[in-house]
């Protein structure tokens, strides 16, 4: 019973944060047909912004999160303008996905190494947003920090859902995802929409980075593991499917926390990977993905 509570609690926490990072990738893939490899770097940058705001300037937590959101939003927009916008004309060529995979990967290399030069290879401690622990059941507890992380992740994901469902810009994003040419002919400003989408996705990852920075550290390679988990989540959920990504995020989170409690951390990734292989062999487009064009 204690184990079950621990697994459930940690699973929800992990799932929420993976969802936050992965949903951005799904959003970008759904609209632009690009697998954004710079998403992990945004987590890393978010961690540094959190460290800069909380540890060196001592501002309050809400401000730090807002700062991370704004900064990674700008960075994500810039990334799109540099690595995707010049290639939009080649959008219908067969290798567009591979080419943008490589260019966003190049941005990730660049950002990681700028961070490495600027901050050095050291791990920086990021203070937690909220201190203290919540006792759940017979010695099982989660920190308020993790709880806040899960709650804010869920709130942001709901916010994204509402943005897509209710606002004009969200409608435009969905329209572009469904049919680029039709959207264009209805005067949707596609060239402005793409940077906005990528900025938004990056900002979600950046906010996640502040939380993850406090959970682990801020370091130049802090984005690698979140990127790997986000990749696993989006593959499992089916690229371009927001609900699929959510299911997959919690599934991966639960599996990870189950492995950590029952088997040991060493085998978490191999087990997850094995599970994904098995699922993909039977469902090559993930849980909710479909072979048709991208859609949200």
């Amino acid at each position: 019973m204690t184990d079950a509570v621990a697994i459930l609690a940690n699973g929800v926490v992990y799932g929420s944060i993976y969802g936050l990072v992965a949903i951005g990738m799904t959003l970008i893939y759904g609209t632009l047909r690009i697998l954004d490899m710079s998403q992990g770097s945004m987590v890393m940058v978010g961690g540094y912004v959190g460290w800069w705001a909380l540890a060196t300037h001592g501002v309050n937590a809400v401000l730090a999160l807002v700062a991370a959101f704004v900064f990674t939003f700008a960075l994500g927009t810039a990334t799109e303008l540099v690595s995707v916008q010049p290639l939009i004309a080649r959008r219908n060529e067969v290798d567009f996905e591979l080419v943008t995979f490589i260019t966003t990967f190049a941005v990730a290399i660049f950002l990681t190494n700028v961070a490495l030069q600027h901050f050095g290879p050291f791990q920086q401690n990021v203070p937690t947003i909220v201190s203290g622990n919540l006792k759940l059941y017979h010695g099982v507890s989660i920190s308020y920090h993790e709880l806040t992380m899960a709650v804010i992740s869920v709130v942001l994901m709901i916010g994204l859902g509402l943005f897509l469902a209710r606002t004009r810009w969200g409608l435009a994003v969905r329209a572009v995802a469904q049919d680029l040419d039709a959207a264009r002919s209805l005067a949707v400003p596609v060239t402005r929409l793409y940077p906005l989408t990528m900025g938004l996705a990056s900002a979600l990852a950046g906010v996640g980075g502040v939380f993850l920075g406090a959970l682990y550290f801020a370091s130049p390679t802090a984005g690698d593991l979140p990127l790997l988990f986000a990749l696993i989540v989006v593959v499992l959920g089916g690229l371009g499917s927001l609900t699929g990504t959510l299911y997959a995020a919690y599934l991966v989170g639960m599996t990870q926390s189950f492995c950590e409690v029952e088997i040991g951390t060493t085998w978490t990734l191999p087990i997850l990977y094995g599970a994904i292989l098995a699922i993909l062999v039977f469902r090559p487009y993930g849980l909710k993905g479909s072979p048709s064009e991208a859609r949200l």
Binding site: L35, F101, L228, L231, L239, L269, Y273, L277, V281, P284
Partner: peptide
């Protein structure tokens, strides 16, 4: 075999995470 069941970007995702998992296991 599993890789070739997939298409396009899924292929790179699967193989990329394969490499990461192998590295992770090797580090351990």
């Amino acid at each position: 075999f599993p890789t070739l069941r997939l298409f396009g970007i899924y292929t790179s995702l699967l193989t990329f995470s394969f490499a990461q998992v192998i590295q992770y296991v090797a580090v351990n």
